[in-house]
Amino acid sequence: MAFILSFAALIPLDSLGHYIHWGWVEISVANFIIIVLMIATFIAAITAPFPGRRRRKENR
């Protein structure tokens, strides 16, 4: 429980959310991080080698 509380303390949930303002674009930092993570995951998903794929190709 103490571990969970100390981990939760890293993210202040009682304060107001942080927002990024860029011209007419307004997005919360949390949503921005999620979108960046999704783009990074997508790039990794299409570029990272799939385990065992090379072995299967050689066996064919």
């Binding site: 998903a45 299409i46 990272a48 799939f50 794929r53 299967r56 190709k57 064919r60």
Partner: peptide, 11 residues
């Protein structure tokens, strides 16, 4: 088929 070995399908 071999081309199904893709992370996109894992998602």
């Amino acid at each position: 088929p071999n081309y199904v070995s893709s992370w996109i399908y894992v998602f």
